[in-house]
Computed example of a mutant assay.
Amino acid sequence: MLLADDFFLIAHDDRDGKSRLSARAVELGLAGAMLGELVLEQRILVEGPRLRVINRDPPSDPLSHTNLATMVAEVQHREVRTWLMFLGRTAVEAVGQRLARVGLVEQTQVRRLLRSETRWLPTDINLPAGRVVRLRRLLTGIEPMRVADTTLAGLAEATGLTGHVMWDRDPALARRLQQAIATLPPPLRDLILQVESAVGDSVMSQRG
């Protein structure tokens, strides 16, 4: 499963599709995950607050292909924060549609007072819960963590999803998570830091 797909499923309730985070945190987390997919595919490189395209060959995934093509066309924009904001605006729809195309979620409209809200319901309610359990098993050391798994865990930490995965707040798990993030390649560590900073700024602006 691709990085943003995993984040999407963990970030939404398996019963009603409701977001576990603020809308902005989910958008920024998904945007970070989509950028992470391109880093993992060795199409872009994140260096501190900036990024650059290092390989223009189109990825096999259509959404990643579209994202990379947009970045190539807008090569003058190199700030990670700019791309988090840009991709975040359509991230839920884009990743939801990708999951829907392979039959893992279904789009539905939920009435809320005077407006309706789009939600993405899993076709198998065990799938999102299973992704949460899998990530927890990785963090406890029961299964080995790949780079993509550690990146997912880092994005969960950066956006505030960790409490959903580590529901008992085990200090040993928290330490293991931080140790795992510290072993990531610098481009992925820098990406996680940028997502965390963007989410923090979003929280502060809402309070202001």
Rank of each mutant, 00 (worst) to 15 (best):
L3I: 01
A4M: 00
F8G: 03
L9P: 08
L9C: 06
L9S: 00
I10N: 02
A11M: 08
A11E: 07
A11P: 06
A11R: 00
H12E: 03
H12D: 03
H12T: 03
D14W: 01
R15E: 12
R15T: 09
G17S: 00
K18N: 08
L21P: 02
S22P: 04
A23V: 02
R24F: 09
A25L: 09
V26N: 07
E27R: 12
E27M: 05
L28Q: 02
A31M: 00
L35N: 02
L38A: 03
L38Y: 04
L38F: 04
V39F: 00
L40C: 05
Q42V: 01
I44E: 05
L45H: 14
L45T: 06
L45Y: 12
V46N: 01
E47D: 13
G48V: 06
P49N: 10
P49C: 05
R50P: 10
L51W: 05
L51R: 06
I54W: 05
N55M: 01
D57Y: 13
P58A: 00
P58W: 04
P59G: 04
S60N: 14
S64Y: 06
T66E: 13
V72M: 04
E74F: 14
V75F: 15
Q76V: 07
R78L: 01
E79S: 15
V80R: 10
R81V: 14
W83G: 05
G88Y: 07
V92K: 10
V92I: 15
E93I: 14
A94Y: 01
V95R: 02
G96L: 06
Q97M: 13
Q97F: 14
R101C: 13
R101N: 13
E106F: 00
E106N: 04
V110H: 10
R111T: 12
R111P: 12
R112N: 09
S116C: 10
T118N: 13
T118I: 13
P122Q: 01
P122I: 03
T123V: 02
I125S: 11
N126D: 13
L127I: 13
G130H: 04
V132N: 06
R134F: 12
R137L: 08
L138E: 08
L139N: 00
T140H: 11
E143S: 11
P144S: 05
V147S: 05
L152Q: 04
G154D: 09
A158H: 09
A158N: 10
G163K: 00
V165T: 03
W167G: 08
D168H: 14
P171S: 07
L173W: 01
A174Q: 14
R175E: 15
L177T: 00
I181A: 07
L184D: 00
P186A: 12
P186H: 09
L188M: 12
R189A: 03
D190T: 11
I192V: 15
I192M: 11
I192W: 07
L193M: 13
L193N: 12
Q194P: 07
A198S: 14
V199C: 06
V199I: 08
V203E: 15
M204C: 09
S205K: 14
